[in-house]
Amino acid sequence: MTGNIIELTGLTRRYGQFTAVDNLFLTVSTGEIFGLLGPNGAGKSTTILMMLGLTEPDSGTVRVCGLDPTTHPVEVKKKVGYLPEEVGFYDDMSGLRNLIYTACLNGIPESEARIRAEKLLERVGLANEMHKKTGKYSRGMRQRLGLADVLIKDPEVIILDEPTLGIDPAGVREFLDLIVELSREQKITVLFSSHHLHQVQQVCDRVGLFVGGRLLAAGDVKSLASQLFGKSPYTIEAGIDFPPAHAGEAPGPEERKQAIRQALLNTEGVSSVSEENGILQIACARDLTGEVAAAVLGAGIRLTSLNKREYGLDDIYYRYFEGGATNE
């Protein structure tokens, strides 16, 4: 685990007015499994294409295995295996022939290519289907063949772009296990792009969160949560209701709502309070469930429900990808 095998500095790529990748800094160290997590259209694929020299950055530099893929694409592609999002094979050739073809393109003599291809097909569990035409392969089989195709050149880095798309859950599990196993066995650095956070959580040593062409945060899942939510990793949801107010007595519900919000905000450790449909959302640094309950009841408000939530990648995901960043 020495040094960085992938280094992106200030990488920018624009398509007309649209900036797909915006001043991206990213390093991946040798031997780790790095997850690039982001919604569709976040610029993950564009970043990957730039790492392979298949598209040129507008500014910034890419270094993969110490080489610049824009000027030395062939050297980089010798060391980097890439599994595209929707991998295609020559349908009228068998899986084995497809692999041998790739191996020959990598300068491996045909006799050795065959030995390697057979070994790898066995490894990815396609030993019985190797002579079948790839046109008849199922989606999961194609992905496994794709993995074998990437590994046949004996790469230092493999880049997998949404490799689990369209595989059934059992297949995904198997596929991910295979990736982890192979990576550990052969000391291959893996860059894994996905929008499925659970899969990323399952296999990756480190995760980079990618939204709108920017890297929001990078690190392991735990440090990611603290990076993103800093002072408030807990959210407490409190359902509130107001007992029917007697005429002339006490302030109306709106004022009382304001009062309880203010009271909660004054509590130590609470960073923000919001209210929607009678549910208070209280973001806080510690577990303040008891204090919140006491404060609500103390204000003479009926407490209908109380729920404590801890942040996982799930929340990161929803907060940043789907709802956009609220609660700021």
């Binding site: 298949l54 592609k77 010798k78 890439y82 393109l105």
Partner: peptide, 8 residues
């Protein structure tokens, strides 16, 4: 894209 990601 698969062929062009080979070292050619």
């Amino acid at each position: 894209s698969r062929i062009l990601s080979q070292p050619i």
